[in-house]
Write a protein that binds this DNA or RNA. Structure first.
Length: 302
DNA sequence: AAGACGGTCAACCGCATCACG
DNA sequence: ACGTGATGCGGTTGACCGTCT
């Protein structure tokens, strides 16, 4: 990680913006003095009220800039340094499950920010996947081999779905999973605010090419209130299942490509799943809205 | 030695959602 | 129900730095 102080004396960007266009509002890299002012103020007064914070803290910055600086750099819980191999593995699996939901992914990796993970993905991981012949958006082979694509494109069926009420960061999630014969297909990992379920399909973040489908917010499917433990354990199980299928696809395409850490996980998944083939199909937002170019249909079959 | 090039990452931008009156 | 300000999120930009030629 580059030392921030080496960048603090650089020229500020000068493009005017709606929130920073006021005369006297500073832009560009933060100086150590500004960092200290902000950190001291937030430690003393707490987070929030970002709009008025700069004035109260004696900073010539807009509130957005202050919030970003605190969240991505100054917060004590922010972990600096290189992404560890196990973190990278986790990012890969979470991205396969969640798509470009950087804040959700970051929420599962202690000390890492969404910005950091997003940067790491865009600069390192996506290129690494492309180099391995894998589409970083879909996590499927760029040039599918028929046999392997059979796994990747296992039919999504909708008989007897089970809903998983989940909650994280104060938001409620729903994952609808369907077990069909030997295949377990997660057909929906839905997110919606607890209070406005009906708006769940509006403006979902970019799914970035996932094979997306989204069940419209149907409150009858929702079973009670979940908690973070439920979400964690469910997501963990998804991750374990997901890595198994992921490695299966990779093995079919490039048999000698597995890294040692992944091989270990595959073994455990195989034991856990009693040799069954598991498929995880995670769906996300924008396709369901008809506002992206993912080319996906509107959710699961009825 | 120096310019070109590419990678990295902090910061900015626009937009959507939330909260509240 | 509606309007408005605050907050949060993902995409993009551009400066810095190391490596290559």
């Amino acid at each position: 990680m580059r030392n921030i102080s080496s960048r603090t004396s650089t020229k500020s960007k000068s493009i005017p913006t709606p929130c920073c266009s006021k005369v006297g509002i500073k832009k560009g890299p933060w100086t150590p003095e500004e960092d200290e002012l902000l950190a001291n103020y937030v430690k003393k007064e707490g987070e929030g009220r970002w709009r008025t914070l700069p004035k109260r803290a004696g900073l010539l910055r807009c509130g957005k800039s202050c919030r970003l600086r605190w969240m991505n750099y100054l917060r004590p819980s922010v972990k600096r340094g290189r992404i560890a191999p196990d973190e990278e593995d986790l990012i890969l699996r979470l991205h396969r499950l969640l798509g470009n939901r950087w804040s959700l992914i970051a929420g599962r990796i202690p000390g890492r920010t969404d910005n950091e993970i997003k940067n790491y993905w865009n600069t390192c991981l996506s290129k690494k996947l492309i180099g391995q012949g894998i589409d970083p958006r879909t996590h499927k082979p760029l040039n599918p081999i028929p046999n392997s694509s059979e796994i990747a494109n296992a039919p999504i069926q909708n008989s007897n779905p089970s809903s998983f009420p989940l909650e994280e960061d104060g938001k409620v999630y729903r994952a609808v999973a369907t077990r069909v014969s030997e295949n377990f297909t997660v057909t929906n990992l839905d997110q919606f605010p607890n209070q406005v379920v009906g708006d769940a399909t509006k403006n979902r973040p970019n799914c970035d090419g996932f094979d997306m489908g989204l069940q419209s917010g149907n409150e009858e499917d929702f079973i009670g209130n979940g908690n973070d433990d439920t979400f964690s354990s469910f997501l963990d199980s998804l991750l374990n299942e997901n890595v198994f299928v992921y490695q299966q696809q990779q093995q079919l395409q490039q048999p000698n490509m597995l890294e040692p850490s992944c091989q270990t996980m595959v073994s455990s998944s195989q034991v856990f799943n009693h040799g069954h083939i598991w498929e995880t199909e995670v769906t996300s937002s924008r396709a369901a809205l008809g506002t992206d170019n993912c080319g996906a249909s509107n959710g699961r079959p009825a």
